[in-house]
């Protein structure tokens, strides 16, 4: 996997590069601001970008705006956004920027190297990876059509939104993969999703669930 990394803190940038390169990823360019990111994406052939939300010059939400801009230019370009804090509002904006190939995670999640690299892979493969902290605030909401899901289906849906595979969901919930497949099919039906290949339906389910 060839990736572009944008992070303004040198320590964290070096850490990210080391971590990604140790896991069979190639970091083709590492930049420290959104403008250089645009240039780097034009100059280098890459499979995706990992970027920080807060970057110069205003240190607010440059990374987020950059992610949306990149995807407006290159529809479906995989972007994983990292942040010191997560907001449902931002998750929605990112999800609205195209179908899938998007990730939004707390920087803390990088500590769990295996899961983080797995998340990067899923985003590059076109999946959706949303931080559990965002998911938990959505779970607390009581609204249609989420209410139509059973408690178990809600749990499965939350894990789908986090970007887990059926196998990972099965082991997290201590059930068989077959049982998970049954739940996901029921979820897809309840969310009125048209028949399509599984990955695409998962992305659509997340969008429907978040009501983007």
């Amino acid at each position: 996997m060839r990736l572009v990394v944008a992070e303004d803190n040198a320590l964290l940038r070096d850490g990210l590069i080391r971590l990604l390169e140790a896991n069979d990823c190639t970091v083709v360019a590492a930049v420290d601001n959104a403008e250089s990111l645009t240039v780097a994406l034009r100059e280098h052939e890459s499979d995706g970008a990992v970027l920080d939300v807060r970057m110069p010059p205003t240190f607010t939400d440059e990374g987020l705006k950059a992610a949306v801009a990149i995807r407006a230019e290159k529809p479906g370009f995989p972007v994983l956004v990292l942040s010191q804090y997560v907001e449902q509002l931002y998750a929605r904006e990112l999800l609205a920027s195209g179908q899938g190939a998007i990730g939004y995670l707390l920087k803390d999640r990088v500590a769990n190297v295996g899961e983080f690299v797995d998340g990067v892979r899923r985003v590059v493969a076109g999946g959706t990876v949303i931080d559990p902290e965002v998911i938990s605030t959505i779970m607390a909401r009581r609204e249609e059509p989420v209410d139509r899901l059973t408690a178990r289906e809600q749990e499965v849906m939350a894990l789908i939104a986090e970007g887990r595979s059926n196998q990972a969901i099965a082991s997290a919930l201590f059930v068989t993969e077959k049982a998970v497949a049954k739940h996901t099919n029921s979820i897809f039906a309840k969310l009125d999703l048209p028949v399509a290949e599984d990955d695409n339906r998962r992305v659509r389910a997340v969008l429907a669930w978040l009501r983007v």
């Binding site: 804090y85 907001e87 449902q88 509002l89 605030t137 009581r142």
Partner: peptide
Amino acid sequence: PPVLADRGLSGAVQALALDMAVP
């Protein structure tokens, strides 16, 4: 709150509203 710095009062209140259990 960082979202207040990023988006000002309007955005931050929107973010608060989204996190509410009540619509």
